[in-house]
Design a protein around this nucleic acid. Structure first.
Length: 603
DNA sequence: CGCCTTTGACCCGCGC
DNA sequence: GCGCGGGTCAAAGGCG
């Protein structure tokens, strides 16, 4: 047995040695016969704190400390050692007895001990540390607290690990989702091409039907209605299979041409929808501007690719199809009306505000945002509060994302994509709006609600998802230039078609859908096979509901804001358009155009 | 320091 | 031609 200073420890070969240990802190647990001691190795300055051991006082009839003058024998049955520095380690010290001479136990000052170990201590394990914290507070931490801290640390580490795992899984999920969407897009494209090849044979008959109908309208209304369909892209594709027709008719702008409008004509439609067709042709084609679909999307110059009618890009007829398609797609706009107190609804994308203007007829400023998730992303959006009800926020999206979207953004993108597909499928010029909207009203939209609105007004086709479901139908008067596309009832059993079943990001979805859907469906609507086309049209609506639901569920704020509206949709509780003239969602964007265009409200 | 917002100026198309 | 309105730019300032 070694006796060093006041404390003697019988060394264990596997243990450690306290060289001239000094007690730097100690206290006696109240109502608990344990001593807590902090030792300092005088040589190494290692500190061993929290040493706790039950004491067996010779006079243990009670647990009261003996009188200061008494010199008692304390038998240490077991000593727990705890290092504050390495909290995960502790060791037990077996000892037989320690002679303790207590002083000043009754005073308020920390007791002082003189140790005289007369039996060996069996050090089972050892650990060193130097934690001064327990000195300052004057109270040695007890072992229970330290063990609890140990457990807490372990749990914290486990939590961190699980968080990391969760983050990794989220990333994987996003990757899988993106891959899924890409594959789906490819599949849809292939199916569309196949379908187009099948339907091509029947288009000639449809064209004849269309011409007959045009002629009928001409005679009855005394008004020449030009067939001007927004060509939605290369697909024109299916149509491009008839190159002679598209190339010639588009330039001649023959009012009696078939709906197989080529790209150039489509661009004209987007450009100057306010004017009649002849004026359009004269004005737009005389100008030679070639900035559509090029890099100017990244750095849009004023007036070239804006939102308003004056921003319609000029299209040189010689422009390639892709460029014109992009220009067309960028013109398709989707407005989302939602109740939100926030200045901007959360849609998962990153936006940078680049302008703010006071719009006529609305005291609330209109803010302009540009997508900043990727350099050169052409997607922009306008945010404006409704003048009539400032709790309603109208967000209008335009353009195609040229980058992957996070899941949160995918939700809204899918919503707008589906809505845009609905719009583009029935896109029409201002003059066509009169008739096509009636077609939609009579044949495509037997089930009614007021949750989606398509603006047939020029310059740009706009579909609005009215998710506010205003309680007062008269509060928001729908402009005369709009007709309503209802969301389908939940009970409707939609057949998903490639055209619409594409929960794709906004841009890509629009781009691909535009390749075939718009023109074809427009034709179909005017053909004698209206019932069949109505069936084909409905999936867009169903997808819109699905996508809207996804968007809402993806964002708690959005959820809260739109819960009521979605409930009405899901329950098929949408009011009939006749008594739901509450959606003027496109008013903010087209309010200055409404009086110059012609369209009907579906009844 | 970089990013963002603000805000006045500018451009453009359209209507008169 | 001019005014108006929409859309965008870009400098200035704020903020983290």
């Amino acid at each position: 047995m070694d006796k060093v200073g006041g404390l003697a420890i019988d060394l264990d070969p596997t243990g450690f040695f306290l060289n001239k240990p000094t007690i730097i802190n100690s206290f006696l647990k109240p109502n608990h016969p344990k001593w807590n001691l902090d030792f300092m190795d005088s040589t190494s300055n290692n500190r061993f704190s929290g040493i706790e051991f039950p004491v067996n006082l010779n006079s243990r009839d009670d647990q009261e400390p003996p009188a200061p003058s008494d010199e008692k024998r304390v038998v240490v049955d077991e000593m727990d050692f705890f290092s504050d520095k390495n909290r995960l380690h502790d060791f037990d010290v077996k000892a037989s007895s320690i002679d303790v001479k207590k002083e000043d136990l009754h005073s308020g000052a920390p007791p002082r001990f003189d140790f005289d170990v007369n039996t060996g201590l069996n050090l089972l394990t050892a650990n060193t540390g130097s934690d001064q914290s327990t000195i300052d507070d004057g109270i040695s931490p007890n072992v229970e607290n330290k063990r609890a801290k140990n457990e807490l640390a372990v749990l914290q580490a486990e939590l961190d690990r699980m968080n990391a795992e969760n983050h990794r899984l989220k990333g994987m999920l996003g990757q899988v989702t993106n891959n899924y969407n890409v594959l789906q897009m490819h599949l849809v494209t292939m199916m569309q091409q196949q379908q187009n090849s099948k339907t091509e044979s029947s288009q000639e008959q449809e064209m004849m039907d269309v011409k007959l109908e045009e002629k009928k309208n001409e005679e009855s209304g005394g008004k020449m209605i030009q067939r001007q369909f927004m060509d939605l892209g290369p697909a024109a594709t299916g149509e491009t299979d008839e190159p002679s027709q598209s190339s010639s008719e588009g330039r001649t702008h023959d009012p009696s041409r078939s709906p197989h409008t080529n790209v150039e004509v489509a661009s004209k439609e987007n450009r100057l929808p306010h004017k009649n067709s002849s004026n359009n042709e004269a004005v737009t084609f005389d100008k030679d501007r070639s900035e559509v679909g090029n890099g100017r999307d990244e750095s849009p110059d004023h007036g070239s690719q804006g939102w308003g009618p004056n921003k319609v890009p000029k299209m040189n007829p010689s422009k390639n199809v892709e460029q014109s398609t992009e220009a067309t797609m960028r013109k398709a706009r989707v407005s989302v009306r939602a109740r939100s107190e926030a200045p901007m609804i959360t849609d998962g994308c990153q936006w940078r505000k680049y302008g703010q203007k006071m719009a006529k007829g609305n005291p609330c400023p209109r803010a302009y945002y540009r997508c900043t998730m990727a350099a050169g992303c052409p997607v922009r959006k306008q945010v404006q509060r409704c003048a009539e009800d400032r709790t309603i926020l109208t967000t209008t999206y335009e353009g195609n994302h040229n980058h992957p979207l996070p899941p949160a953004a995918m939700a809204m993108a899918s919503t707008t994509s589906a809505a845009a597909s609905m719009l583009l499928s029935g896109s029409m010029s201002s003059t066509d709006g009169l008739m096509n909207s009636n077609f939609l009203a009579r044949n495509l939209l037997p089930c009614t609600s007021s949750m989606a609105t398509i603006s047939a007004s020029a310059p740009f086709p706009t579909v609005t998802l009215d998710l506010t479901h205003p309680p007062n139908p008269l509060q928001f008067q729908r402009p005369p230039s709009q007709f309503h596309i209802p969301f389908p009832n939940q009970n409707n059993n939609f057949v998903s078609t490639p055209t619409s079943a594409m929960p794709q990001v906004f841009g890509q979805a629009l781009y691909n859908q535009s390749k075939f859907s718009g023109l074809q469906i427009s034709q179909d609507m005017e053909s004698s096979q209206l019932a069949h086309q109505a069936q084909a049209q409905q999936p867009s609506l169903a997808d819109t509901v699905t996508a809207a639901t996804a968007a809402i569920t993806a964002d708690p704020n959005f959820t809260a804001a739109l819960a009521a509206a979605i409930t009405s949709i899901i329950n098929g509780g949408g009011a009939h358009p006749n008594n739901s003239n509450n959606s003027n969602s496109t008013t903010n964007n087209n309010n200055n155009n409404a009086n110059t265009t012609t369209s009907n409200t579906i009844t």
